[in-house]
Design a protein around this nucleic acid. Sequence first.
DNA 1: GTCTATAGTCGGATAGAC
DNA 2: GTCTATCCGACTATAGAC
Lengths: 243, 243
Amino acid sequence: MSRKPSSLPSTPCLSSTKEAREDDARNRLLQAGLEVFAKCGFEAASTRMLASKAGVNLAAIPYYFGGKEGLYHAVIQAITDRIHRHMQPAIERAQALLEDEHASKSEILDLLGMMLPGPIALFASPEARYFGPLIANEQQQPTSAFPILYEGYVRRVHEIAARLVGRYLDIPEDSPEAIIRTHAVAGQMFVFLGARATILRRLGCDSFSEENVRLIQHIVAEQAKAALKGSLPMTHQARENQP
Amino acid sequence: MSRKPSSLPSTPCLSSTKEAREDDARNRLLQAGLEVFAKCGFEAASTRMLASKAGVNLAAIPYYFGGKEGLYHAVIQAITDRIHRHMQPAIERAQALLEDEHASKSEILDLLGMMLPGPIALFASPEARYFGPLIANEQQQPTSAFPILYEGYVRRVHEIAARLVGRYLDIPEDSPEAIIRTHAVAGQMFVFLGARATILRRLGCDSFSEENVRLIQHIVAEQAKAALKGSLPMTHQARENQP
DNA sequence: GTCTATAGTCGGATAGAC
DNA sequence: GTCTATCCGACTATAGAC
């Protein structure tokens, strides 16, 4: 009763790229780390838990990752890569639009609205069910792994979003106002990740149904656009389709 | 070098009510628990840290609270009481308005807008600088202490807010749509608590200045109202001042 | 009520066989 | 590369003096 991988049922391999396909100890530890660190947090996760969940020997953790912390960093790096890959198309679309001097306000607003359902779908997907706790923990008690997340995708995404907001509202993209407005808008999405326990209890369920996810995507996109549109100076709201 | 309370400088006593005024071991442990659990999380906080930060003996934790977990529960109970007290006036105002059959939509919207700056001020206050991590951790990895928070104020506040949103949008207050819309709106506030590390890095500072807090309060209230107003069916938006 | 001293457990990392 | 066995430090809780 020592060799079985016990319980690694559904979740697909995190790094599904070409080369890293083997079901070896290293990958099994990465997957187990994702689950265990998400469920317990870094401190409460013990190397014994990690090894037994992965179905590998305890000594494999220092061997492959230099220790528990090294495994944690590798897990954070893996989810950062995954999210970055998921966001890249939207980032490129936004960059293209921002280079267009003649983009209309309504085009900018629509693009901002379209940037929200993607992350919601990702974070609600089974593949990503462990991302939330890991990200939220790094927000509250940033560790040495926080820069991996921040430089990996957070900074890029927020800067692009703030540029769009700045363009839409005719304010400098790096002003506190643009940054705060962008954050507030993003908060309409983020709260479903960050206040997960409360919303699920309010909805009376244990996890988000597909129907709930669609509803959240629709409502967040709608309200996000409305929030910014309503923040336009009055004179702009009438002629919103001007560049 | 064993008796000094070492570092309990500024933060005022958590339970400033009449009777509990003594600077005794029990209160010092509560305050230290607030700080240490917030900074490290439950698991990483050791009884040695807690006792030395409080300037009391290690054995005082089992003595007064039955153990580390009991101290944690007491800390969560204390912040729940604090937040509940802070929210009570707004809750009562909302209840009064909801009992008024003739309240206009714009009155309801204004009240919703007014419910947001309060919590923002509280969570940004020095007194409450440790609330965020504790609350966020319970959202991500709810422990046996989560019901203390949820039943203590979260449920009440969210139900009231959802009733206001439902009234404003003419949808049932307990429908998924009302619950999700309410959550998304609240997210514009919550994100400043839950994604603290990111927003501070974007703003280029270590903590929120008073000016930032005022800006956040203004923007969140404005965007929250706009988000809901923009979600009204078109036909309503013209005659918004009708009941 | 507060202390010291210690019991008993579990943590992460390592040594060294295979 | 993978295993077993073990070290050693840190943890929480308790016993019992004062």
